[in-house]
Write a protein that binds this DNA or RNA. Structure first.
Lengths: 183, 183
DNA sequence: TATTGTTATACTCTATAACTATA
DNA sequence: TATAGTTATAGAGTATAACAATA
């Protein structure tokens, strides 16, 4: 294996990376590792996120959860179906709006989520271990802050209509199979 | 439309958001807006990212670009095909390794990328406008820093083998059709 | 009439495998 | 033998549309 002459690499040892690429790298690594932790969940990382939202009680019904996760409503059906089959969440008819179903964690689901959240927290720390001490927490805070602002802007629909139309189809799912060593 | 009793919402006005959810929201909004800007590119945001990497000369051949973007090598073929068809990039045989093709921007591609990068930069600023002055730039710096560390850890393969196996299939693509207003 | 949730269908995208050329 | 790139196929995931129940 031959090496290229370091023509450009010597000129720019650390080329300024595109923000989108970096963001993608970060999320990819994060989801990749979390996937291993939540491999038992039918629906992978998104099922975990549904559990996280249910645990935080930030959203009530499936439509609200779907909106928060940037998913189509139809996908929520499969996701909640899978979680409910394992008795991790339960669908409760909303007493106020009988069309809607409130998604809440069962005792089993709550216990499992607590355990998984611990692993995920460990992954986050590990993933950001390249940053200096306070920077990791700073990054975490800023990301959540920015996301909160974006969600608020999207819901309000003020000032920037482009934000609410940002419904990119992000396939966060992870195929069941990992790397097959042999063939 | 009836309102739920603010049982939980009054208890936790700003529930601690999951880092993964927030990261997803951020990337989703970013890609959604960038998609509109690069709608003329065959391949959407990923084609733009290929151009960005080609512009920075960080990677030489298709395989290296694919690795950096977390894509399969086979997808690079379609991506570069599309860009080459519009004469935005060109494949040059690597004089050192005749198997490889170096992907470089044409004059037309370079001019277009400069224009697009300006729009993207504007989007970034707009997207992070919810953060206080220096925080936006801080977030940008930290994300790139974290991504650089993750890439380095993945290539070196030291300490954390889990990082390199983080090959999540992230469907960042955006379907050609936007929202159809009427039906 | 609008919204929540479900189901079925069609489509897009991705990964797998096989192949060629080169190291 | 291993790697870069291409191509074709099969598979997984997603969105679209239609439906029933409720507001």
């Amino acid at each position: 294996m031959q090496q290229h002459p370091p023509s450009a690499s010597s000129l720019s040892p650390a080329p300024p990376q595109d923000f989108g690429c970096a963001l993608g790298t970060l999320l990819r690594a994060y989801l990749g590792q979390v996937t291993h932790v939540v491999s038992d969940l039918p629906g992978g990382t998104r099922a975990y996120q549904v559990m996280a939202i249910a645990a935080s009680r930030a959203c009530h019904n499936q439509a609200a959860i779907a909106e928060r996760l940037g998913l189509d409503r139809t996908i929520m059906t499969y996701l909640v179906d899978g979680l409910e089959a394992q008795e991790l969440v339960k669908r409760t008819p909303d007493p106020v709006d009988r069309r809607a179903r409130q998604v809440t964690l069962t005792a089993k689901g709550s216990a499992l989520f607590t355990e998984l959240a611990g692993h995920v927290s460990h992954i986050e720390r590990h993933l950001l271990s390249g940053l200096a001490g306070p920077d990791a927490e700073q990054l975490r805070t800023l990301v959540v802050q920015a996301a909160t602002f974006i969600e608020a802007a999207g819901k309000a629909g003020h000032a920037c209509q482009t934000l609410e139309s940002a419904n990119v189809s992000t396939n966060y799912m992870y195929p069941e199979r990992q790397q097959s060593p042999g063939e």
